[in-house]
């Protein structure tokens, strides 16, 4: 359906990738840990190694949670747009097929938040 308008109604999207100074947006959520109220948004260069997100970014973001130190990274399950997905930590975001404004989630089996409350 189109916008009802008195004349042609076409505008450029406000968040196209060219506006982010060489970065692309990636959203990351940690399932079952609602202490962090929402998934996060990041501007990352497409050439960034996926492993550098795990090692360099996530500790600063999720480290406040006592479960974070317990994560067994070999068992983490990833979702991309809600579907199971397997990243290669040695490859870049682009090589992993991540595009501008993609959303990924990590599930950490066995870790269910503060006192098992999914917080």
């Amino acid at each position: 359906m189109a916008v009802a308008a008195v004349k042609e109604y076409q505008f450029a999207p406000a968040d196209s990738v060219d506006k982010f100074h060489g970065n692309q947006l990636l959203y990351i959520g940690w399932e079952d840990h609602l202490l962090f109220c929402a998934p996060f948004a990041f501007p990352f260069p497409p050439a960034m190694r996926f492993g550098d997100i795990i090692a360099g970014v996530l500790p600063g973001v999720f480290g406040y949670h006592p479960d974070f130190a317990q994560i067994d990274w070999s068992k983490v399950e990833w979702l991309k747009s809600g579907q199971p997905w397997q990243p290669d930590v040695e490859k870049s975001l682009a090589e992993n097929g991540l595009k501008h404004k993609d959303v990924i989630r990590l599930r950490t089996p066995g870790l269910t938040g503060i006192k098992g409350s999914f917080s």
Binding site: V17, D32, L34, K99, V103
Partner: peptide, 14 residues
């Protein structure tokens, strides 16, 4: 216990 995510592809973007 689960955040609600929904998405749409429209033209070039998500």
């Amino acid at each position: 216990t689960k955040i609600c995510y929904r998405e749409v592809d429209y033209k070039e973007d998500k």
